[in-house]
């Protein structure tokens, strides 16, 4: 069965099709949520809201304009941002003036890190940094798009990405030293 056929059946509210679609993308959606929230509970709450959006707005999906994965991932990302907006009064944080020394890491050393460990590292970032890092590095949005989505200016987006990288490198250093 093709993806379009599966979506057509979901639109007809066929339970089996709904389950199949969920199983196909549950990991993709859940990993997005986990990256945006430190708390697993928050991530699950957002995922539930995102699922409601995906299944209720599915008729808006146009298969000719893009694939379902990217459409649904956008819905999940937006839901995460909405949740963050409610919890975080502002994405602006104090500037970091300290320059961190980041040692060169061999590829093999970095390769041993699992997606789970990297996700945990992202989760430890402050909410604003986490959001910008996810949107820019993982989701692939531009700084202009991020600035619009988070209601910040481009400079803030760039600066928060830079700071997020610093903190992640610091965490990497600590982790590899251990």
């Amino acid at each position: 069965m093709t993806e379009n056929e599966l979506i057509s059946r979901v639109l007809k509210k066929e339970r089996a099709a709904q389950v199949q679609l969920y199983k196909e993308y549950q990991t993709t959606w859940y990993m997005i949520c986990l990256r945006y929230h430190k708390s697993k509970q928050d991530a699950q709450d957002v995922l539930q809201n995102a699922l409601i959006k995906i299944f209720t707005k599915l008729e808006q999906f146009d298969g000719q304009k893009g694939n379902f994965k990217s459409w649904s991932s956008k819905v999940v990302v937006n839901e995460n941002l909405m949740f963050l907006r409610k919890k975080v009064s502002s994405f602006k944080v104090d500037a970091i003036d300290d320059v961190l020394f980041v040692p060169d890491q061999s590829e093999s050393a970095l390769d041993i890190l699992s997606a789970e460990e990297l996700t945990r590292m992202i989760q430890k970032l402050p909410a604003g940094y986490r959001a910008v890092f996810n949107l820019y590095i993982i989701e692939g949005f531009s700084h202009q798009e991020i600035a619009d989505m988070l209601n910040i200016n481009i400079g803030t987006s760039k600066s928060q990405l830079s700071k997020a990288r610093k903190l992640l490198q610091k965490q990497l250093e600590t982790l590899l030293q251990e």
Partner: peptide, 12 residues
């Protein structure tokens, strides 16, 4: 760093 996160986290 970017490459590391992209490669690991885009695998779902």
């Amino acid at each position: 760093l970017d490459k590391l996160f992209q490669s690991k986290l885009r695998n779902n």
